[in-house]
Design a protein around this nucleic acid. Sequence first.
DNA 1: TTATATTGTGTAAAAAATACACATTTTTGT
DNA 2: ACAAAAATGTGTATTTTTTACACAATATAA
Lengths: 245, 245
Amino acid sequence: MNRSLPPLTGRGELIQDAVQLVAAYPKTALTVDCVIFGFEENELKVLLIRSDLQAYKGLWTLLGDVVNESEDLNEAAYRVLRERTGLNDIFLEQVQSFSAPGRHPGGRVTTVAYYSLINVRHHKLRKLDNEVHWHNLESIEAMGFDHKDILDVCHQRLQRRVQEHPLGFNLLPDKFSLRELQNLYEAILDIKLDRRNFRKKFFSMDFLIDTEEYEVDVPHRPGKLYKFNFQKYQRNQKKWFGIDF
Amino acid sequence: MNRSLPPLTGRGELIQDAVQLVAAYPKTALTVDCVIFGFEENELKVLLIRSDLQAYKGLWTLLGDVVNESEDLNEAAYRVLRERTGLNDIFLEQVQSFSAPGRHPGGRVTTVAYYSLINVRHHKLRKLDNEVHWHNLESIEAMGFDHKDILDVCHQRLQRRVQEHPLGFNLLPDKFSLRELQNLYEAILDIKLDRRNFRKKFFSMDFLIDTEEYEVDVPHRPGKLYKFNFQKYQRNQKKWFGIDF
DNA sequence: TTATATTGTGTAAAAAATACACATTTTTGT
DNA sequence: ACAAAAATGTGTATTTTTTACACAATATAA
């Protein structure tokens, strides 16, 4: 940012004391809120906690926390994930900030929204947080604060990203069948896909590793299990063009 | 956001006094910074001002300002645009926030980055701001604060968006030739495009209005001038799918 | 053994993207 | 007046991508 506008003085007068300048600015509390997506039983899920504010009693909210004094935004978001899920190296993306003056009953609080994709099997919820639960994305209605808006914006971002990058794998177990993969895409995008074309598409991208293993305990012909070839994907980061309004 | 983590107490104890809660949070100053893109002489431009901080003497910075006490982020960003360019109803999009603890020499300042597209002919720079100038995007090197990073991120966002929505028209005069349009896309995306295919593409999208007028004062055969059919575009907001890593 | 459920597979048609060249129109310079 | 320069305007063939669509094979459950 730059100088506050009204006292524009033309040219030349440089501000010596930046600390004094910033001290005079209005201040806001700063938080991060994480939309943590998971996938289970062919449904897209979100991890929510009950609001601890009387004002939102009974309502669900996103997992978030205050950003500490000398902490960057990403650090804070990773910390929230780590503290809540025990998971460390996770996909995480900043989405956007929300700062409507009335969005928090306690005063001005600016929040930076993130979303994250985790494998619901790989984490253990913190014991004490017995109000932390996975929710079906579809079934979520009212939430505390403006968290429903944040959730919707993050879901839209996910829908978009998952078509540009193979992020979906973060939600799946290490080994997965193509049907699971397709169910995942259908759940995220909320559409039906053609099975043969879906397979063709993913095979042609050529970063599925055939494990030569098969599903077990399914009440029908078991499908082959694949792994995602992260290395190959990272080597071939696709160039990108095509006007497409 | 939700409760601060360390003193997790299990369940049940709702916070009555949200104001007291927020009062105890660390605070940050909050600003918006606008990357204002323009297009002139076939070059993508950005509007910059000289830093008014001694610490960044001589360096260029984005146009920004503090977010006022009861102002939302978008309001603040529109205000910056209005105050700097005199323009009111302009395309503007929030990109992301930057809050590294050391990013401002005066203490913690969180900034929310926006980008905006304006027609360089439609505005008059504020008289007093005689250090506000258009810069060739290509030629920008060091900047004050972390503004070069912000600029780069916003440019990437623009490159992406301009292929999903016909935003480019915001940078052009009301009437424009197809060559100007192509030059614009080539400047934004920093690539060469095939002239015939480019024309085909845009004609097939069918929101160019033929004005039956032609360029004047060009040292060669003049091209036809077109207008952009905003209404038609808004009616046909395209649905969207195609996995495309 | 049969019914059920799901996997695995290929081709044809349609749509979209790409590569590519020449005649036309205007201005500028002689 | 003419020639040179510069850019416009236009169409087709090829390749690539997307879409639509059906049946045999394999495993489990009854």
